[in-house]
Amino acid sequence: MMTEQEFHVDNTIRLAERMVRSGSFNHLYDEGMSLVEEAAFYLDGEGREEAKRLSRIAATLYAAESMRLTTRLMQVASWLLLQRASRSGEMTLEQVLSEKAKVRLDTDSAPETVVGWDEIPLSYCDIVHRSLRLQARVRQMDDEIYNDGAGTEQKRVLSINPVSDQISLLATAFGHR
């Protein structure tokens, strides 16, 4: 990606780029992957049981929010896997940029003022809030690394099949193409 001298452009130190290249990235990577695992475990177990006790409106909200949560976490995990692959030299910058174009770091959550949110279990709300904070941190790092921190939104091509894109992205990151 960048050499040590390229970190200093107009006296700006690109901390996110350094962080991805440093040992502290492992903490962020582990946090992201642990949250993916925790969410999956919750949704398949305790969350499934708790959802059965919700009103129809809250159950619908819970189902929609679960899809958003899963999408958000898969996108963050994909970004983290790409950075790890880049860091280890498994992918070139061009490959990372090509695959990164498929990653969306903008999956919002339903507003907590929406009808039914007050019925959503607190343990689930905690996972949602942590996923949003993680996504915000990753989005900020992505912006600093790939957009020079300018806050510009990259133009993204909407996919006809986002699940297929996600599987392809994960397969590429793991080297199974």
Rank of each mutant, 00 (worst) to 15 (best):
T3M: 11
M19G: 05
E17M: 06
T12V: 13
L134Y: 06
E46K: 11
L132Q: 05
E37T: 09
S55G: 09
S88R: 10
V163T: 08
M33I: 07
L15N: 04
L122K: 15
V96W: 07
T152I: 13
C125V: 08
E119Y: 00
A136E: 07
V76H: 03
V103T: 02
T3P: 02
M33K: 07
T172D: 11
V76K: 05
N161S: 13
R156G: 03
E31D: 02
V115A: 07
F174P: 00
M141L: 10
S164N: 05
L28F: 05
W79E: 07
F7K: 13
L158K: 13
E65G: 02
T3K: 12
Q166N: 12
V114W: 01
E31F: 01
D142Q: 03
L134E: 01
N11W: 07
D118H: 05
K52F: 08
D44N: 15
T60E: 15
D30I: 08
V115M: 06
G116R: 00
L170C: 08
Y146D: 10
W79D: 03
M33A: 10
M67Y: 14
A85P: 03
P162S: 09
S98R: 15
A51L: 00
D118S: 11
V115R: 06
Y62N: 02
T71P: 01
S98G: 12
Q140R: 12
A59L: 08
R18D: 10
V128F: 00
R177W: 13
V36D: 06
E153I: 15
E94M: 08
I167F: 05
F25H: 00
R133P: 00
Y146H: 10
Y62A: 02
E17C: 02
S88G: 04
A64W: 03
E37H: 09
S86M: 12
T152E: 13
D108H: 10
R21D: 06
L170N: 03
